[in-house]
Design a protein around this nucleic acid. Structure first.
Lengths: 143, 143
DNA sequence: ACAATAAAAGACAAATTTATCTTCTATTGG
DNA sequence: CCAATAGAAGATAAATTTGTCTTTTATTGT
């Protein structure tokens, strides 16, 4: 469904949201350990999300990653869009570029329903929700 | 959603179903041209599906690929299962191996609905349906 | 039996994704 | 201002997926 990179991205951001609900920052090593991912790999991913304004980062001592008020309004769809592009939102299930409403592949309408369900889910899940969850179930972000 | 290999597989089998609805056989070159895929690549995919009994093949002159009565009862789910495994049917959307009903990831229940919709679609689409379609819209299997 | 045909199989190569390692830059506290 | 800290960035490498090429095997019609 998502690339591995995107899976790490979502897990990482959820972890950050949960761990920095009080406005504090969290270091990359802690994130990597928290979601059981390669440190430098998740670092690059978070840098990308930071550049795009989906999350915030701060260099130097006491630095780390966190979410500001604006970021908490972002959705999972924003993350997926930055990392995997819009393939999952608009792409044909059979990988056909020319597939469209007017020239549909044999499964176009069926796939459309599923794509729409995925889009709706991702667009309606805001990052702030994860900060607000009382029971974080952190262990379940590890593989 | 699917690997490229799996996309080719589905497109290839639909094409074969449409082209051999009369019980005839179709050569690998024609299939490759028909779905705009690398010849040897789709060949390997169809060989695998043939070994697993999802489609039939015949060597030698007048040989080629086709579907028998039994194969027409197979579903898209069977193809996906052979090529991509059961990840799409049962896997966690965030790639977590330990994610389950009792230890769910933060998106488990939401992803479950989507997985179920995909499963239902794939399991309910039988290969025979494509043989029976009057208007084949063959061009829409090409990229 | 023989030559032609077409799928099967195996080796190899390119491309993409995933992961690692090293160096650079910004920030903080003393 | 300096040393320590921590993210940013770039280069490199491993693994996986995708694609290509060559040889083998089975089948057919003559």
């Amino acid at each position: 469904m998502f690339s591995k990179t995107c899976e790490y991205a979502i897990r990482g951001v959820i972890f950050i949201a949960q761990k920095t609900a009080d406005g504090s920052r969290i270091g990359i090593k802690e994130v990597a350990a928290g979601i059981d991912s390669p440190e430098h790999f998740i670092a690059k991913i978070l840098q990308e999300l930071s550049r795009k304004g989906i999350i915030q980062s701060q260099k130097g001592p006491t630095g780390g990653f966190y979410l500001d008020a604006q970021s908490r309004k972002h959705t999972l769809a924003d993350i997926v869009h930055v990392i995997d592009g819009d393939q999952i939102f608009t792409g044909c299930g059979l990988g056909l570029k020319q597939c469209s409403e007017t020239k549909p592949c044999p499964l176009h309408n069926e796939f459309k329903k599923i794509r729409d369900a995925i889009s709706k889910l991702l667009r309606s899940t805001h990052l702030g929700e994860f900060s607000e969850q009382l029971e974080h179930k952190l262990v379940f972000l590890k593989r």
